[in-house]
Design a protein around this nucleic acid. Structure first.
Lengths: 221, 221
DNA sequence: CGCGGAATTGAGGCTCATCAAGGAGTGTGG
DNA sequence: CCACACTCCTTGATGAGCCTCAATTCCGCG
C-alpha cells in the first residue's frame, strides 16, 4: 500500500504533496540508519513522510513475533498518513534512508481548512486501499511461486532503473511481505533463475535482471 | 473492509451518509435475491450502497476461479464506494438483501462541491483500509484455528443480536474470506465446539452462541 | 416426504515450514 | 593484504498443516 505519487500517477497532480505542503511549515529532511525505527505502531502520528532516498518497510507484529509487512516504500513514496491520530504500522528504514517530513495537524483541523488537502488525503488513502485489496488476494489465494513472481513484477514496475532491479530488502523481508518463509522465497527465486526468467547481476543476489517478463507474468497468473 | 458507520462509530457523525445524501437525489431501495450480483469488478461505479437488510460479500477472482472475499457487509454497512470510476470488487447478495442506493457523480465533480462529502469519503475509505490492513496480517501470518477464531470474534462484534450469532454465509464463503478451504473451516469450528468455546443453537450450523469469549480471544492470539 | 445443497468427518497427499549445513559476500583487525 | 567473523542466501532432508478427494449425515426446501 501507500502510493507512489510522483511516478505512474493516474492523476495529473505533480507531486501529491502539493496541497499538503502548501498548507504547512517548510518541510525538513532527516536521515535514518538502516534497521532503525521511524515510528512505531500505535504511536501518535505527528508527521507525514516522503522518501527522498532509501527504502522503508511498514509492518504489524503478532505477540509471538510473527510479522506481516504491509508495504515497502521507495523514493518518492509518501507514508505515515493516518486519519486517526495514531500509526497503524511500525515503519523501519531498510537501508540508510533520507526522508522529508511534514508536521501534520489533527484531521479535524485539516478538514476545516483547504478542501484540496482532504482530496489529497483521500487520493493517497485510496491508493493504499487498492494495494491492500490486491495484496489480500495474493496472501489468501496465491501459491508461493505466484507470490514471488507477483512481487518481482511489482518491484520491476516501481523501480526507476529500467534494466537492473536493485532489491533493498532481504529475503526475510520479502517473505514477511508475501506470507512465506525466507527459504521458500529463496527456492522460488532459484526456480525462476533456473527457468531462465531472471538473472543475477554481479556477485550479489539482490541485483536482478528480468530476462523474460512475459513468462514471469504468466507464472504470476 | 468497508465500514459500518451507524454502529460503533469512532466519529460522532450519526450516519456517515449525512453529507453524501444531502448532496444527492432522494435515495432508492432495491431488493436482490440471494446469490445475485449487485455489481461486478471493473464495472463503472455509478452508485453507493447501504444495506438495509441482508448480507453481501465482495470478492476478487483469479482466472482459474480461486476467490478471495475481501469483506462481508451487514445491515448498516456502506459499500461500493470508489475513488476511481470502476468497482474493484464484485459484490453479491449472500441472502435476500435490501439495499439503499445513491447515484454518485464522478469524484472530480463531488470534490468540487461540498467539502464534507470528501471528508465522509475519506472517513469511509480509511475504515476500509484499516480493515484490509488487519486482514493482511490474518491472511499472511495466522493459523487456520486463529483465523476462524478471529472471524467469529469479528462477526460477534458486528452482530446486533447480543446472544445468538446468525451467520448468513456458508462455510465456503468463510473459507474464501480467511484463505482456507471449507473443510478446514468446518474442522476448526468443530474444535472450538468440542472445546466448549461455542455452541450451536437449534438444528442449523449457522446459529452460534459464544460460550467463552475469553478463551476464544486467546485462541485468536 | 424426498431431493439437493451444506456441513461434517476421515484418509491420504502435497505444499510449504522447520531444522540443518554449507557457501558466498562484506567488514574488521592484525 | 589476508584471516576471521558475521550476515545473508542457498540447498537439502524431514515433517506439519492444510488441501484434496471421498463418504456420510444433516437440513432446508420444494
Amino acid at each position: 500500500m501507500f502510493a507512489r505519487v510522483n511516478r505512474n500517477s493516474i492523476r495529473p497532480t505533480t507531486s501529491g504533496l502539493t496541497a499538503l505542503s502548501r498548507e504547512r511549515v517548510p518541510s525538513s529532511e532527516f536521515h535514518y540508519r538502516r534497521d532503525t525505527e521511524i515510528f512505531g505502531e500505535a504511536e501518535p502520528a505527528e508527521f507525514i513522510y516522503q522518501i527522498i532516498e532509501g527504502a522503508v518497510r511498514s509492518y504489524k507484529l503478532l505477540s509471538d513475533g510473527r510479522r506481516q509487512i504491509g508495504a515497502f516504500h521507495l523514493p518518492g513514496d509518501i507514508f505515515g498518513v493516518e486519519n486517526g491520530n495514531v500509526h497503524r504500522f511500525t515503519a523501519e528504514a531498510i537501508v540508510d534512508t533520507t526522508v522529508r517530513f511534514l508536521k501534520r495537524q489533527g484531521v479535524e483541523h485539516v478538514a476545516a481548512g483547504d478542501a484540496s488537502v482532504v482530496r489529497d488525503l483521500l487520493f493517497l488513502t485510496t491508493k493504499n486501499l487498492q494495494h491492500a485489496e490486491d495484496h489480500m488476494l495474493l496472501l489468501g489465494r496465491k501459491t508461493s511461486l505466484e507470490k514471488v513472481a507477483a512481487f518481482l513484477i511489482e518491484m520491476d514496475r516501481r523501480s526507476t532503473a529500467a534494466e537492473v532491479m536493485e532489491l533493498p530488502m532481504s529475503r526475510r523481508d520479502i517473505a514477511d511481505y508475501l506470507g512465506l518463509t525466507l527459504e521458500t522465497v529463496s527456492r522460488a527465486i532459484s526456480i525462476l533463475h533456473n527457468e531462465g526468467i531472471l538473472n543475477f547481476v554481479g556477485q550479489t543476489q539482490r541485483r536482478i535482471v528480468l530476462v523474460n517478463r512475459y513468462r514471469l507474468a504468466q507464472v504470476a497468473a
